[in-house]
Simulated assay, not measured.
Amino acid sequence: MALYDPASIKHRKKLLDFENNTNISLRNRYVYFAVDKVANSSIKNSLFDIEYAPVGKKTVTLYDKRSSPLLSPYQLPPDLLREVLNSGNYFRFAFVRNPYSRLLSCYLDRILTASSKPRRQLNAYLKGRGEPTEDVTFESFIRAICAQGSNTQNSHWRVQADDILFGDVEFDFIGKFERLWQDMAVVSSRIWGELRPEMANKDVNKSPRATNAGGKLREFYTPELAALVADRFAADFDAFEYERDILSY
Rank of each mutant, 00 (worst) to 15 (best):
95 F>L: 09
15 L>V: 12
127 K>Y: 01
92 R>V: 13
166 F>K: 12
179 R>N: 13
11 H>N: 10
159 V>P: 10
124 A>I: 02
181 W>F: 15
114 A>G: 02
107 Y>Q: 06
113 T>P: 00
43 I>N: 10
52 Y>P: 00
80 L>G: 03
134 E>C: 00
116 S>W: 01
18 F>N: 09
178 E>K: 02
215 G>I: 08
145 I>R: 01
86 N>A: 00
246 I>S: 09
243 E>L: 04
192 W>S: 03
30 Y>P: 11
146 C>W: 15
55 V>L: 01
173 F>E: 03
48 F>T: 12
84 V>S: 07
58 K>I: 01
99 P>N: 04
66 R>G: 14
172 D>V: 08
28 N>L: 05
152 T>G: 04
154 N>P: 00
216 K>H: 13
80 L>R: 12
208 P>E: 09
175 G>P: 11
109 D>T: 02
17 D>K: 04
195 L>H: 08
56 G>C: 05
16 L>A: 13
160 Q>I: 10
15 L>W: 14
194 E>Q: 11
67 S>C: 07
146 C>E: 00
93 F>D: 02
47 L>G: 07
176 K>F: 01
95 F>D: 03
246 I>G: 10
113 T>N: 14
212 N>K: 12
180 L>T: 05
82 R>T: 15
141 F>M: 04
78 P>K: 07
1 M>V: 08
171 F>D: 10
93 F>P: 14
121 Q>A: 05
222 T>V: 11
77 P>S: 14
39 A>P: 00
88 G>M: 05
101 S>I: 10
198 E>W: 06
231 D>S: 15
40 N>M: 02
203 D>I: 01
36 D>K: 01
173 F>K: 07
127 K>A: 14
212 N>I: 08
8 S>H: 10
54 P>F: 13
239 A>T: 07
115 S>C: 00
116 S>T: 04
11 H>V: 09
203 D>M: 12
94 A>Y: 07
244 R>P: 06
102 R>W: 01
94 A>L: 06
238 D>A: 15
89 N>L: 10
61 T>I: 01
149 G>V: 00
8 S>R: 15
39 A>T: 03
